[in-house]
Computed example of a mutant assay.
Amino acid sequence: MSDESHEPSKRLFFALSCAPEQRRAIAQWRSALQLRHGRPVPAENFHLTLLFLGDVGLAQIADICSAAAKVRVPGVALRVALDRLDAWRKSAVLVLASEQAPPPLLRLVYALEQAMLPFGFADLPKEFRPHLTLMRDYRLPLPEVAAPPEFVLRAEHFTLFESHKGRYRALAEWPLLS
Rank of each mutant, 00 (worst) to 15 (best):
Y168S: 02
F46Q: 04
L132R: 03
T159Y: 05
L153G: 00
P74K: 00
F52K: 04
A62R: 14
K90H: 10
A27S: 15
K10V: 11
P149N: 03
A77C: 10
Y138P: 01
G120I: 06
I61E: 14
P149D: 01
V109Q: 05
S178N: 13
T159F: 07
A122D: 12
V93S: 04
V41M: 05
A115K: 06
K70R: 09
E21H: 14
E150S: 13
Q114F: 07
R72W: 12
V93M: 05
S98N: 01
S163W: 03
W174I: 01
A97H: 00
W174R: 04
A122K: 13
A115L: 02
L124I: 05
S5R: 15
V56R: 01
D63A: 15
M1K: 14
S5N: 15
S91D: 14
L50V: 02
D63N: 14
L176V: 07
P104N: 09
R107Y: 10
T49F: 03
S9E: 14
S17G: 15
A170P: 09
L12E: 08
R84A: 08
E127W: 09
P148A: 07
P149K: 00
F151W: 00
S66C: 15
G75W: 01
P118D: 09
R36I: 11
A59V: 07
E99I: 07
L142V: 03
P42L: 08
E21N: 11
P8I: 11
S31P: 09
D86E: 13
A155Q: 05
P103V: 04
A32C: 13
R136C: 06
W174D: 01
R107E: 12
Q28H: 14
A111Y: 04
G120V: 07
V80I: 12
W88F: 13
A147R: 10
E156F: 14
H157R: 14
V41N: 01
A19N: 10
G57Y: 06
L108A: 04
V71Q: 03
A15V: 08
L48R: 00
E44P: 07
E144K: 12
P130Y: 05
D86F: 08
F121W: 02
F14G: 04
L124T: 02
L105I: 00
L51S: 08
L106N: 09
L117K: 15
P143V: 09
L112V: 04
F151T: 00
P102M: 04
Q28G: 15
D63T: 10
L12D: 12
L142C: 10
F14C: 08
V152L: 08
